Simulated scan of single mutants.
Amino acid sequence: MLSILCSKKIWLIVSTSFLFTAPAFAGWEVQWIDKFDGDGVNWDNWTAQTKANYNNEVQCYTDDDFSDARNYDVSDGTLKIIARKKTQNCATLGGQQKTWTSGRLNSKDKQEFQYGRIESRIRFHNLEAGSWPAFWLLENRIAQQPNKGDNDFSHWPSAGSGEIDVWEWFSNQPSSYITNFFNTSGCGSEYRYTYPNGAQDVLDWHSYAMEWSVNKIDFFIDEHLVVSQDLRSCTQYQEPMFALLNVAMGGMLGGVIDPNLQQVTMEVDYIAHCKVTSINDEQYCNESTSVADDSSDDTGGDTSTPSNAGSSAGSSSIWMMISLLLMNTWRRRDGFSGRKG
Rank of each mutant, 00 (worst) to 15 (best):
E163L: 05
G255A: 06
N172C: 06
F242M: 03
P157C: 11
V276M: 14
F153H: 12
Q236W: 01
Q263T: 08
N246L: 06
D222S: 07
G186C: 11
I221H: 02
N260E: 14
G198S: 06
Y177C: 12
A209E: 07
N183Y: 09
F242Q: 11
V226F: 01
V276H: 08
W156Q: 00
N172S: 10
H155E: 10
C187L: 08
G254Y: 03
W167Q: 09
P240M: 01
R192S: 08
A243T: 13
V214I: 09
V227Y: 03
N180S: 10
N215M: 00
V247M: 14
D150W: 13
A243K: 06
D281Y: 06
V268I: 14
Y177P: 11
G160A: 05
N260S: 13
R232N: 07
D222G: 11
E267V: 04
D150P: 03
W205C: 06
H155V: 07
K275Q: 15
N183S: 10
V247S: 11
I279F: 13
D165S: 07
C285D: 00
V247P: 03
N246K: 11
I164G: 01
F220H: 00
Q262C: 07
I279T: 13
I217M: 03
E267F: 12
A272W: 09
C274R: 12
S175N: 15
W169S: 06
Y237P: 04
D152K: 13
A159W: 03
F220K: 00
V264G: 08
I257Y: 05
V276D: 02
S288D: 11
T194N: 15
T179E: 15
S161W: 04
G198W: 09
D204G: 01
V256W: 10
F220M: 01
S176M: 14
S175T: 15
Q263P: 08
S175H: 15
A199E: 15
N151T: 12
A272G: 11
S228V: 06
T184H: 10
V247I: 13
E267N: 10
A199T: 07
F153L: 13
N286F: 02
V202F: 04
P259W: 04
S213P: 00
Y284G: 00
D165R: 03
Y270M: 07
V214M: 00
P157K: 10
S171G: 11
S185R: 10
K216W: 06
G188R: 06
T179Y: 12
G160Y: 09
N260Y: 09
G198T: 04
G255P: 05
L245D: 00
Q236C: 05
W156G: 00
E267G: 11
T265A: 12
Q283Y: 12
Q238R: 08
Y177Q: 08
N172E: 08
G198A: 05
H155M: 03
